[in-house]
């Protein structure tokens, strides 16, 4: 029973992070109808930015509240900038081209980033994983019994950050002018442009927002797993995408639910079956959902407009 509870907590901790990354996929898909394959790799770059910042700050500084804030701010701003450049120079020129070209471009960027970061040249970090500095000093927040159930401070903190980011996003999308513009672009970007909405700016901002969100999620992930590696973007990104599709891509609360479900499923496979089957189960689950409910748990298969 205690073990079940522990797995539940671990699963939720992993799931909130998947949910945050999945939100980025869903937002970009919403406005552009593009699977931003490079999303996970942008996240990875953000984590390396945080890694470098944490080292620049030094040991004492980085575990203070201000230090943590600086690490997150640098990574999120840096990623927003990266997202802006990718959108401006790789995706925007292709907006009126067939959708396949943009998808291939996204895959290309993902490839260039994840393998570029494995090079041993200059400032690039090399293929081996690095230990992520402990920006949040791990402290046991709650211990039940003889360490039967342990809840860590970083689990609580990352859960808190994730929930705050999600609530903020929900507010942004449904309660602000920018959110309304975003929804309009997502509905039909040509009509939105006719209505006087600056679609280019809205799309660019959406990209920056989703990239910043990814950087935040990536840092939480790195803190959880105590390490950072060039391939983490590919793996986490894929899982988050699966989460987004399970919840129904383009659907904001769906992405959150999908992330949590996937986090729990994975944790229970590892805890009660064999860990090596984890990835197979995650993707098998995806195929199953697509078979039964092609639009995901919450999404609807939209009739296509000509």
């Amino acid at each position: 029973m205690a073990q079940l509870l522990q797995h539940l907590i671990n699963g939720l901790a992993a799931g909130t992070i998947y949910a945050l990354v999945a939100l980025g996929y869903t937002m970009v898909y919403g406005v552009l109808k593009l699977i931003n394959f490079a999303h996970g790799d942008v996240m990875m770059v953000g984590v390396y930015m945080g890694y470098a910042t944490a080292f620049a700050l030094g040991r004492d500084m980085r575990s203070s509240l201000l230090g943590v804030a600086v690490v997150f701010a640098v990574a999120m701003l840096g990623c927003a900038l990266l997202g802006f450049f990718i959108e401006r120079f790789a995706y925007r020129p292709l907006r009126e081209k067939p959708r396949l070209t943009a998808l291939i471009t996204a895959i290309g960027i993902s490839f260039a980033l994840s393998y570029g970061f494995q090079l041993d040249l200059g400032f690039l970090p090399g293929a081996a994983p690095r230990a992520f500095p402990e920006v949040i000093e791990p402290v046991e927040w709650l211990v039940i019994g003889d360490r039967d159930v342990v809840v860590w401070n970083w689990q609580v903190i990352s859960f808190g950050i994730a929930v705050a980011l999600m609530v903020g996003l929900q507010y942004l999308v449904f309660r602000t002018r920018f959110g309304r513009a975003m929804r309009a672009v997502s509905w039909d970007h040509r009509v939105a442009a006719l209505m006087g909405i600056p679609t280019d700016r809205v799309i660019a901002l959406t990209f920056m927002l989703s990239s910043a969100l990814a950087a935040g999620a990536g840092l939480l992930y790195a803190i959880k797993d105590t390490s950072v590696s060039p391939l983490m973007g590919l793996y986490v990104g894929l899982k988050a995408f699966v989460a987004a599709v399970i919840g129904g891509i383009g659907h904001v609360p769906g992405a959150v639910v999908g992330g949590l479900v996937l986090g729990l499923v994975e944790e229970f496979v590892v805890g009660y079956a064999a860990s090596t089957w984890r990835d197979a189960v995650a993707f098998g689950f995806l195929i199953l959902v697509l078979l039964v409910k092609p639009g995901g748990l919450f999404g609807r298969v939209a009739a296509e407009k000509v």
């Binding site: 790789a90 895959i107 290309g108």
Partner: peptide
């Protein structure tokens, strides 16, 4: 290879 894909698409 990755950059080649992007360059080709553009």
């Amino acid at each position: 290879y990755g950059l080649l894909l992007v360059a080709l698409m553009l």
